[in-house]
Design a protein around this nucleic acid. Structure first.
Lengths: 202, 202, 202, 202
DNA sequence: AATGAATGAGAGTTCATTCAT
DNA sequence: GATGAATGAACTCTCATTCAT
């Protein structure tokens, strides 16, 4: 019992170690191909073969990595909404998205820029839409239902805020010299202000 | 004369063929490393060696691709502004950016996704200092100078519209099922409406 | 135990096999570039990749070869000096050098012919500072200190005897029809006789 | 007539240009393989193909180069003997050999150290032995016939001086920091002094 | 559970050389 | 006489992966 329990624990720890090391390497290198199984193995002081005891192949390791990262993103965004005002809630969720992208640039790049294969990227998009995106969508729904966004519907706002968030992250990641706080507040503020304003007659 | 002219033409055609094939492969593969010179060669039914007659190495080929594409983007955006109203002009420029990204997804991916680190570090000056961004910045300046965007300055608007445009393109590219026209008009419309509105008291 | 011991033994044997094969190829080809990793691999009936399990790269393989051979040369020369008369000792050392070159022509070619520039630039310190040359230099010093070589200093004699030895080996290796013993005694004898003689008034 | 004469002249000039450039490159580079036809072509501002109009392939070009150089060596050595004293004449011939080796290090290496192909090396050895070596042998004979080298015969001195010359060249080529003039005079001086001295009783 | 040994495939790149013009 | 275009072969080296232990 105790022995097998220990084994279980060790196994889980080693698995985590592999994932953490791989993540570090993937984000450092910035490309799928630049990270080799051998380098990961060297990073954890185990033989390359050992990794195959925990992951079928490089692709499965990478996909697991993606899944874990998505989970973190989802959690962060879900926990970010604290205000009762739905508009503020949407703002909070959007900020949380941006914050996650900026604070974990490696994760963000991993999710949206490193694309080993089409299969992975498609899966990634779906998963993302299924969690973090849904928080935005939910908040958008609350705002629309409360009549705060005249002329806009829930889906449009959900997709729009998602796009705005994306744009902010990628721009700020690629231009580190910009004033982050100022640009974030500007873009989110103007977009939300536009949503709150009466619809233009056009 | 005729002979050398034919040669010239053939040479130019082959060069273009290489560039087009490479672009296609780079954007479908989604990563720099996943495309090999041999694969490009196979794609054009020539030997790998032949490519080296036209480009010094893989990097030069890729950079040429980047340069050419940037040029097209710049041109498209520069020609897009036709209205005398600076706000409409900014809107036109932003639309042109988005349109370019959507109509030439390979180009866009090439510029901003295939090798973001390179695009950024090597092309940063050209990118933001280049014509495409500068058009946005110019229009933003006109709007601000005309007092149309209370509480915003030129640089902020330039960067903000750039971010919004980026977000739209990448979102729409990764979600082909969305209603493009509607989302574009929504996001651009709300952002611009927010710019035009009186600044929030926050 | 037995298993790992077998593995160790096999590994050592394969390593030696690689080294021996490489040495053979290097010396018959006569140039560094003319020997490829693939050819070595083919020579040992292993894949080219396997060699990289034993040596980091081609250069390390070659340098290991050099090092090993230098060690043999040094040992042979160091053990050769037995007479108390320093002049005889120098003679013995020189003869040992020549004997080594003639008895191990592949080794000798490897050291001084295959990649002379490398042997020099990389191994200069070891070579001249190494035991083989140092034995000559030491003996030369004894002779000079004993006043046996009027008009010559230690370094000059060391370098000179080194040159004479070199010339004998390369000449005898490329002209197998010559009477080795006779030519060796002639050259070493005349050179030493010249050293012992009073300096010419020139 | 005049035209064809001009053509002839141009052809000869270009041929020389190729040979000179190739020689320069061979000397600069460290090995046969390090010099490519393309680099030679670039050095003369002609296309690589042009070289093939003058030389069947790289090997023929190289052999021609060797042949020409040998001719120079033979001439240089033959012309070096000016003194009536046969011993001085031998000294002059040996010095000329050494000087040539030092001034054309790459040819020397290729002739006696690197062996691009067995055919070349064998041919080279014969040619060299048939010319430069014969001068040494002739001078040695004069010395012996004049009774200047008691206890030595012509062939022994010829081979011995050849070996000494060889040793000097290879040593000096691989140790550029040595004082060339001093070492040359030392070795040649001591060897000749030993030849002139009474034979040792051994 | 973990590993060392081994390999085929493939990467970018350079080479000598040929052929049609 | 000279060349531009083109290529197959070869190079060193790294990769993901398998298999026996």
């Amino acid at each position: 019992m105790s022995i097998s329990a220990h084994r279980e624990q060790h196994k889980e720890e080693l698995r985590r170690l592999i994932l953490d090391t791989a993540e570090r390497l993937f984000t450092t290198a910035g490309s799928y191909d630049a990270v080799s199984m051998r380098k990961i193995a060297k990073g954890i002081n185990y033989s390359a073969t050992t990794i195959y005891l925990y992951f079928k192949d490089k692709d499965e390791l990478f996909q697991t990595l993606l899944r874990d990262t998505f989970r973190q993103l989802s959690r962060a965004v879900a926990l970010s909404v604290s205000d009762r005002d739905p508009v503020v809630g949407l703002y909070q969720a959007m900020r949380a998205c941006v914050a996650f992208g900026l604070e974990h640039p490696e994760h963000y790049r991993l999710l949206f820029m490193v694309r080993p294969s089409l299969a992975v990227s498609e899966w990634a998009g779906r998963e993302l839409g299924g969690e973090a995106f849904n928080v935005l969508r939910h908040q958008a729904g609350l705002c629309v239902d409360a009549g705060r966004f005249p002329g806009s519907d829930q889906d449009l706002v959900a997709q729009g805020s998602w796009a705005v968030v994306h744009g902010l992250i990628s721009t700020l990641l690629s231009r580190p010299e910009l004033d982050r706080r100022r640009l974030i507040e500007h873009v989110l503020g103007r977009y939300l202000a536009g949503l709150l304003a009466a619809p233009s007659p056009s």
